[in-house]
Design a protein around this nucleic acid. Structure first.
Lengths: 205, 205
DNA sequence: ATGTATACGTACCGATCGGTAACATTGTCA
DNA sequence: TGACAATGTTACCGATCGGTACGTATACAT
């Protein structure tokens, strides 16, 4: 009598001998399709077809397509913070280097041929209605990102720490969007350089 | 035997005594709905219903929903450059003041309760497929914006003019997205201040 | 062996999607 | 009055949308 399969699925995983559950295959396929082509653009039929399962299997693990989309974003959230913390951990006690390491990697990813930006950002654009399950996850992720960027700006000793933190967030969001708008050679490749200039200007007395 | 009603509609308009054409009502309603709620989220039935016309009228003036979306964006493009040039014309020969005037107004607009970002940017997120009619218009708009920002950065005398122009574009796109993600009090309100800092840093020898 | 619970599939639902065929009505200008 | 173009009306199309009722297969415990 599972109360919430989606959550169970994220905390469970990897019993070594457990057969590949249908829910996992569904979420994996949904992740890929939702991210690459958009949530509204993908129907549940295509998801179950490519996952090699049937529709009732989807609706036994996920209460609705909207909730499946929210589960996709929760998974995205996990992997996002892995990437973020990887850059942070690489430069202990040096927030400026942490930011630049993160943005250097973002800038590189945006130059990949089929880069599709940030799944969180894209979902918020697709679902402007407040309270939509997917949007709720997206907003929470961005709030937390903003909080951390402002904290890092303060740790750098910026005079207007909140302004700098927000400025970095604007550059990041701009890189996500420009990456998928311009493709190779687009403005997103200079996100780290511009962040560095902005930080420099914000630290100057 | 109209070859292209959409274009005729933008160059015509305003015969004073002409009865309000169906095509105009359709485009006006589509503009509002597509911008506020998204293109994929709105069906043609809702458009014609709210426009007080019928579906055949829509398809007599627009070959498809995708082309209607493209027409909406062409209209958006016109109004966008009106706003942009308004800021430019207010400060002749002073590109830095032009940028800041434009960004100050963008920052203010992002703080409105139901701000929905840039119609161009949103359309590109909704339609990642290359060659989609809506995306084509959106990409052209952004290419031109990039070109102008880089030219203005060069006119300011920035050492890395292209880097600064691209940095300003990143801030702008970030403001569009953050405006609809965070609502009131979001990071987009500081876009002009951050742009000013970035420009300052880029001009310093 | 038999009950029981879980996992899965077949087949279907009403609603809506974008788009069209065929015809009636209107206003304008000659 | 007649011709024409624009719009409206009604009804329809096949495809797809998200979602479900219901039967079946499998595994395990007793």
């Amino acid at each position: 009598m599972p109360t919430d399969k989606n959550i169970e699925l994220t905390i469970n995983e990897g019993h070594a001998s457990a057969p590949p559950k249908a829910a996992k295959k569904i979420l994996d396929v949904a992740y890929d399709l939702f991210y690459r082509r958009g949530i509204r653009a993908i129907g549940v039929d295509e998801i179950v077809r490519r996952a090699g399962v049937t529709k009732p299997s989807l609706y036994r693990s996920f209460p609705s397509k909207d909730e499946l989309a929210a589960s996709y974003l929760r998974q995205y959230d996990l992997e996002f913070w892995e990437r973020f913390d990887e850059a942070v951990d690489a430069h202990p006690g040096d927030p400026r280097a942490q930011i630049l390491a993160f943005l250097t990697r973002v800038g590189k990813r945006t130059q990949r041929p089929d880069y599709r930006g940030c799944g969180m950002t894209n979902a918020a654009v697709e679902y402007p209605e407040h309270g939509h399950p997917a949007r709720v996850v997206s907003e929470a992720n961005k709030q937390e990102l903003r909080r951390r960027l402002r904290a890092m700006a303060a740790a750098m000793g910026a005079q207007e720490a909140d302004t700098l933190g927000d400025g970095l967030l604007l550059l990041i969001e701009g890189a996500y969007i420009s990456g998928q708008l311009f493709g190779l050679g687009g403005p997103a490749q200079s996100v780290a350089r511009n962040a560095d200039l902005l930080i420099e200007a914000s630290l100057k007395k």
